[in-house]
């Protein structure tokens, strides 16, 4: 199963692999928002947690359809399904590879981009922590959505529509944790909810995704 992770990471960093797509999108969003909203630092400070979370969520969404679609097109998904690895394991590894190439760069970039949005200094720790805990859920949910739409031509739109509602809880609790951190309040509760969502998704969705792939390969 490690071989799948290594292969996906290698493919992502090679030419045309899509690595950096999400990060570039995130960068563009956070750079453009201050231009659109205006230089009022108080307003920016208020909206910074939400903008950073929405930005990273949409950046995650961008590269979702690549998770399984490319393997489906070139036939490797058939071969992986007949290989001696459980399909659930394939899903977990592919979600992990997606997180490492998309989620992790976002986590690391968010504190830097927080400066552009005048994020409260006490919120930086929570920004990092909430993204680190929350983005894995985005990748796993995304892998599930990608598995559901794998055989479809132009499945990207359907994928977004399926996945976005499932992203909402993570967004709410993630942004809430940062907001509370910025206000100096206790952010423990939203962080725990965020961790709960991530763990539940990681525990359940690989099975659902593997079942969806099996049906789509028929």
């Amino acid at each position: 199963m490690i071989a799948i992770l290594i292969r996906d990471l290698r493919l992502a960093v090679r030419a045309g692999g899509g690595f950096g797509l999400g990060l570039a999108f995130f960068l563009i969003v956070t750079v453009l928002v201050p231009f659109g909203v205006g230089p009022n630092s108080e307003i920016l400070k208020t909206i910074a947690p939400g903008i950073l979370w929405v930005g990273s969520l949409l950046a995650c969404l961008l590269s979702l359809d690549r998770i399984f679609a490319l393997d489906y097109e070139d036939g490797s998904l058939d071969l992986l399904a007949t290989a001696p690895v459980p399909l659930e394991g394939v899903v977990i590894m592919k979600a992990l590879a997606h997180w490492v190439t998309t989620g992790l760069p976002l986590v690391l970039a968010a504190p830097i981009l927080g400066i552009l949005l005048n994020l409260e200094s006490s919120a930086y720790v929570w920004m990092l922590a909430s993204l680190a805990v929350g983005t894995p859920a985005l990748s796993v949910i995304g892998a599930f959505g990608a598995a559901l739409t794998v055989g479809l031509k132009r499945g990207g739109l359907l994928l977004s529509l399926l996945v976005l509602p499932l992203y909402v809880p993570t967004l709410i609790f993630g942004a809430e944790a940062v907001k509370r951190g910025a206000d100096g309040a206790d952010a423990g509760l939203p962080m725990m909810m965020l961790a709960g969502i991530t763990l539940a998704c990681a525990a359940l969705l690989p099975f659902a995704a593997a079942a969806a792939i099996r049906i789509n390969l028929r």
């Binding site: 290594i6 292969r7 290698r10 493919l11 070139d74 036939g75 490797s76 071969l79 992986l80």
Partner: peptide
């Protein structure tokens, strides 16, 4: 299958190495 399941940006050896590790 009809399709070879090759990854275009990996080398010949890397492609085969992946399946060797998988199996």
């Amino acid at each position: 299958a009809h399709a070879d399941g090759l990854k275009a940006t990996l080398t010949v050896r890397e492609n085969l190495m992946f399946w060797a590790h998988t199996y």
